[in-house]
Amino acid sequence: MRIRPSAIVMTIYLLFLLIPIYWLINMSLKTNTEITSTFSLYPQSLTLQNYVTILTDPSCTWAMSIR
């Protein structure tokens, strides 16, 4: 099967669009120590603690006024 050039172009462009977004999500699932101490392409110890913090910590919820 022959790969069409347009598919290659679109793949490269979409990768360019999605990698920064992936990196943001990746960072959000890491612990602070993992972010600063090691460099990893995916979360070694998956954690949702960051989301818990932002939804419960008074200094964060204040910005969203949900509490």
């Binding site: 990196w23 943001l24 960072m27 600063t36």
Partner: peptide, 14 residues
């Protein structure tokens, strides 16, 4: 913010 993090030498992929 995405690009600020993404471009950082210590923690950003780029």
């Amino acid at each position: 913010t995405i690009w600020q993090i993404f471009g950082r030498v210590d923690i950003g992929l780029l």
